Amino acid sequence: MNNQIEFEKQYEKDKPMYYAWGKFVAEYVIYKLNLSQVEYDKLIKIPVEPRVKETASLVQKAFFRKKNYVDPYNEITDKVGVRFVVMVQNQIKEIADIVEQADIWSWSKDKDFEKMREERPEVFEYESVHYIVRADEAFKYNEIRIEKGTPCEIQIRTLEQHAYAELSHDYFYKSDVGIEKKMKRLLARSSALNETTDSLFGVVYDMIENEKEEYYKLNRELMCICEFPDYDEELNRSIYNNVKNMYEKYVMGKINLKEWIEEDIIDGIKRKSDNSLFRQPMILLIYYLLSERRKELLKTWEYTTDMLEPIADDLGVAIEPF
């Protein structure tokens, strides 16, 4: 279809179909994410909505850019797009796996920043994973028929990549004005910095996640020793953070708290359940540290010392001032 008027008419007619297909693609990926153990709010940082290309923008791309299309209407595959913006690079794979494993569409990679980085390691520029997915069969979605083979572009990028892409795409890629060498240089520098920041974000994120997993692992172990049905996550985590270094130094991988905790300690905890401190699983760890590392615990303890006195009474130890 090389007639501009016919092109515009056809696209206006097909716009609802493209939007419906984009909506379906977005909802399918979100549905699969929710089925997994990934926390959606922790992964997706910008609301996901299909974006249908404006008619004027599509016409410009089809007829006024040097793309050398033979059949522009069918060759342009980004009439509708869905963008997933994540926090760090290793989260990109979570969505990429869903796209590639779906049995309702065929897919191809339009852009793969990891491949581009391998082929041109000296170049710092637009980075993002782009897929084109096409409906395997015609079907109806929200009463709108989606034809077989209808394309949708999926972009997966980090927040850092998104910031760079928005600037470079809106002000440079679409611009008809020649870009000064100084601006190109500054843009390249910003891309290099973004890549470094992305990498550092990834390291910090992994450290945070590993630390969280250690907390949850310990908490599960403590709740197997004694039930704490009404514990306060915020308070419990705060106690853990206070003594985390001591736990890692003296307990983790060294002491089996289940074997160390005796029944009379558990009975004492249950009797004091009106005290919020004794409703937290981490109270078991505090019993051990107060018994075996009392001097260091008292120096580390950020709360009032009198909170430890009922524990000291159960253990038969004194809380000396240090």
Rank of each mutant, 00 (worst) to 15 (best):
residue 85 V to G: 06
residue 87 M to K: 13
residue 95 I to Q: 07
residue 88 V to H: 01
residue 78 D to C: 05
residue 87 M to H: 13
residue 101 Q to E: 15
residue 88 V to Y: 07
residue 88 V to L: 10
residue 106 S to P: 01
residue 84 F to C: 10
residue 95 I to H: 07
residue 110 D to W: 09
residue 81 G to K: 09
residue 103 D to V: 07
residue 84 F to D: 11
residue 109 K to E: 03
residue 79 K to L: 00
residue 81 G to F: 04
residue 107 W to R: 00
residue 97 D to W: 02
residue 105 W to T: 01
residue 94 E to W: 12
residue 96 A to K: 06
residue 106 S to Q: 06
residue 78 D to P: 07
residue 105 W to R: 01
residue 82 V to L: 03
residue 101 Q to S: 15
residue 97 D to M: 02
residue 110 D to K: 14
residue 97 D to H: 06
residue 106 S to F: 03
residue 93 K to N: 12
residue 104 I to G: 09
residue 96 A to P: 00
residue 96 A to F: 00
residue 93 K to F: 10
residue 95 I to Y: 08
residue 80 V to K: 02
residue 93 K to Y: 09
residue 82 V to Y: 05
residue 110 D to Y: 14
residue 101 Q to V: 07
residue 90 N to I: 11
residue 79 K to I: 02
residue 87 M to F: 15
residue 86 V to Q: 10
residue 101 Q to I: 07
residue 105 W to G: 04
residue 79 K to D: 02
residue 85 V to L: 07
residue 87 M to W: 11
residue 79 K to V: 04
residue 103 D to L: 06
residue 96 A to Q: 06
residue 98 I to P: 01
residue 93 K to P: 01
residue 104 I to Q: 15
residue 100 E to N: 05
residue 85 V to R: 04
residue 84 F to A: 12
residue 107 W to L: 05
residue 81 G to Q: 05
residue 98 I to V: 01
residue 85 V to H: 10
residue 89 Q to R: 15
residue 101 Q to N: 14
residue 88 V to Q: 03
residue 94 E to H: 12
residue 81 G to E: 06
residue 99 V to N: 02
residue 100 E to G: 00
residue 85 V to C: 08
residue 87 M to R: 11
residue 103 D to E: 13
residue 103 D to P: 00
residue 79 K to G: 06
residue 103 D to W: 04
residue 93 K to V: 10
residue 110 D to T: 10
residue 100 E to Y: 02
residue 109 K to G: 05
residue 108 S to Q: 15
residue 87 M to V: 11
residue 78 D to L: 07
residue 110 D to R: 15
residue 82 V to D: 02
residue 82 V to Q: 00
residue 98 I to Y: 01
residue 104 I to N: 14
residue 84 F to L: 13
residue 92 I to T: 10
residue 103 D to G: 09
residue 86 V to E: 09
residue 96 A to M: 05
residue 78 D to A: 08
residue 82 V to S: 04
residue 96 A to S: 13
residue 93 K to W: 08
residue 79 K to H: 13
residue 81 G to T: 07
residue 87 M to D: 13
residue 80 V to P: 02
residue 109 K to L: 04
residue 78 D to F: 00
residue 89 Q to D: 15
residue 95 I to D: 05
residue 101 Q to C: 07
residue 83 R to M: 03
residue 102 A to R: 02
residue 94 E to Q: 13
